[in-house]
Amino acid sequence: MIIKFMFNKEKKLENFKDAETIIGASIKVKGNFNGQGNVIIEGKLDGSLKTAANLLIGEKAKVTANVEAKEAIINGEIQGNLKVKNYLSIGKKAKIVGDVECGEISISRGALVKGQMTINSENPKEKEKKNPETPEQNSSNK
């Protein structure tokens, strides 16, 4: 099955197992979709999409919506703003027309992004430097 192949292709994608919602290629969803679990889109979505978990947009998907997720892998088309809390992977066939905001990002050669891009990543080492007292607090607690 195509979805299975995608899951196993990259280690990061394993987080997408146990999907709560799958929008297949043969259906069309219109409206505001709000979810708590992982979402896979291979078909069409018009409206808005928000999930507290992970999002995978397949190569043939066409999404006309503002999208929010915790982590996302985009291989299809999005017309709308994309906000990803942590890791965002943009595949080589992805086409995004809208602003992109994320924590970490990887973009494959061939991907198209038309919009403003904001990456709010914080290096873990820098985080430690900013909060040096945290480990001492932990040791004093012991």
């Binding site: 299975k4 709560e20 297949g24 043969s26 259906i27 291979e42």
Partner: peptide, 25 residues
Amino acid sequence: KDFNFNKEKVKILINGKNNDLSYFQ
């Protein structure tokens, strides 16, 4: 399958051509 079959929810499965599958709960 790789989806979460939550027994406390109504589960909607739509099978299309070429093994296409959609799932909602």
